[in-house]
Design a protein around this nucleic acid. Structure first.
Lengths: 215, 215, 215, 215
DNA sequence: CATGAATGAGGATTCATTCAT
DNA sequence: AATGAATGAATCCTCATTCAT
């Protein structure tokens, strides 16, 4: 009997591994590390619980693999940015827009990061892969700041990492705290009409900060 | 055997309840809802596991009580603000400073809110107490915005809730994402020297936003 | 409803613990540490698997408790020996007889010790209780040796621990190696007629050793 | 691609089988039948887990092969003894010395026998090879006894199998119970200085037994 | 002769919760 | 108001073994 192209079940370990990671990503993002159930993950998989242990060794091993995969995605996204040609303020707007959209479109990632913080980033620290995240975004930001100061667009010599935090904080919070914020203020943060308003707000706030003279 | 007045252990249910909540707050903040262990909480308590069930019914009941207690603290803090007399920009700086300091000094609260978001604010929604959180800060902010526009200090008619989110996001993120951010950027966000720099940054960003004309 | 004397199930933790130990002793002696099944032990108990963990924490914890209990029995037996009044050779014969009978009658103990040796006495070493086994038998033996030399009954100043080993070795081996020895030599070592012959043999060998002059 | 003569890895099944047995011997001796892990054995092998099943069918099959190999070694050793020319007591001393040294130098064998006893010699019984162990040592011993009685060196008509047990017991116990004995009496039985003392002791005890008149 | 992928069945352990007093 | 003992139902994980090539 010839192997048909569609019979990937038995012979495509890479696909099996990926399938496990996809399912696990959702479960961990939904319930957290302790809250997620290996049994539940296995059921939603095309394979069995046994294979999860075969490939990832333990629940924590699986969680780490999920985390690494999530960060790998981001890294490639950040690396793709081509902002060197744009004027500084425009480049910054674009960078903010990218971050904003990313978090908005990847609530699983946002939740995984929240979860990892609950665990004191313990797994991330142990991961050589994630720890090495050479955050290219910082270099990009530094370049924007330098160019902005040179052209006089910006007045303030901001620290690139601080600036990244300012941007990230808002983009991240909108998603991470969607539920409590929405409950308290009866406002659905995923409403489309808030989308542009918020993106503008964070952009203007950041630009406002960089433009304002140091007193 | 007569109960003596000093024997508060057996005769002060209020103290016992409070003691349980204190311990539980730390445990839930540290390990999350599923991660926390009732046994572990009980051990650190001056009373027994049985009492937790006696007073709070279930693990979730205890968690909810912890959450309500955490929000109760905040509410009183926000209500204490006396900013009406200050000029708008000064009032805003003070409000931001208060939020900033609060989150910095209450990492347990920040973590509890993160955890509650992982749970889709499900418990918060069910709590009549928390849902009723009469967010006075919004009224305070609205007043500041109005006064700022009237005096010409601000140019932008911002939405008070949006503004609150802008402020909260940064203050909250600094604490909630301390671990992952610290790991990736090798920067300890609790370092004292960052404290003022960050507080200034968020203040200037918000003020910059309000000052800048709408294009 | 008054507690009846017979209703020991719920209210006699000591009896429950003892019951677990009895069953576990048999299972560990029969199948070894890794071979024994917690489920199987639980089934044979008057209580549930959960209680095993409640009382002993883990399979190893249970195994250690079983081991400690086994040694505790021996210790009290050894301490009961009253040999000071007997002539040295008679005292020695009696001591040997006691050891011989003990091992013959307690194959579970012999097997547990064999098992513990397979584990490099790892659990025993960790047990403060067993490690402290103040082996009174050594003092008894030393006294017999000293008296025998004084009276001229013995010619050889033997080391008490060596002598204990000489005696133990034979008594223990008869039981511990019953199966392989029996299979190879087609001889059932538990046959009653071998009992006296073997007891005499070890006695005479030991006495022969002590009596013979050092060359 | 032609197989080269030197590529023994793929082409020497006998060597592969032997390699598996060597590794398995250590693992079974170290952890027992249930304690040993097929995975662990496979990893330490030059081949794969699948080959173990290919050659030995099952874990028990492998264990049996290990056991048979261990006994095969012994048999050849015992057969090599050339004691007929020596005077009876000297022959006995030599036989004891050989047994003593063998056990001392082959702790793996001693442990395997202990393990097999835990399993009631079940595998040994099923093995036609081991069951047929034509214990030449018994004939040797019988010859020594007979000659000793004839020459008047010995007074006691001992049973050859009993005598073998007496000798084996001590030699075996020294190794099999090394760990528990060492722990209880704080004495390292593998110390070189004990070596001669113990060898002499067992020799003198056995000779003392044979020399002493039956009362 | 050789192998990487796959797995069903079981095994140890944990957890929130309740019982009986 | 308070509690020590007890527990059913998961939950994570492991193990010897087989499949397909």
């Amino acid at each position: 009997m010839a192997k048909t192209a569609g019979d990937a079940r038995r012979n495509d370990p890479e696909r099996t591994r990926e399938n496990i990671l996809e399912v696990a990503t959702q479960e961990f993002a939904e319930f957290g590390l302790s809250g997620a159930r290996v049994d539940s993950i296995a059921e939603k998989t095309r394979t069995s619980k046994r294979m999860i242990y075969y490939y990832y060794g333990s629940k924590e091993g699986l969680y780490l693999a999920v985390l690494e995969r999530a960060y790998r995605k981001i890294r490639s996204l950040e690396a793709d940015l081509q902002l060197a040609e744009l004027p500084p303020d425009e480049a910054l707007r674009q960078l903010i827009s990218t971050t904003f959209d990313h978090d908005e479109q990847n609530p699983d990632f946002v939740r995984l990061v929240s979860i990892e913080n609950i665990h004191h980033a313990m797994h991330m620290k142990r991961s050589s892969e994630i720890a090495d995240l050479n955050i290219s975004v910082i270099r990009t930001l530094q370049d924007i700041i330098d160019r902005g100061l040179a052209t006089g667009t910006f007045q303030r010599r901001a620290d690139a990492i601080d600036l990244h935090m300012l941007i990230s904080a808002f983009c991240f919070f909108r998603v991470s705290n969607r539920y409590t914020f929405g409950t308290i203020f009866q406002r659905d943060l995923s409403e489309p009409q808030l989308y542009n308003r918020h993106k503008t707000m964070i952009s203007e706030a950041v630009l406002g900060y960089l433009r304002s003279p140091v007193t």
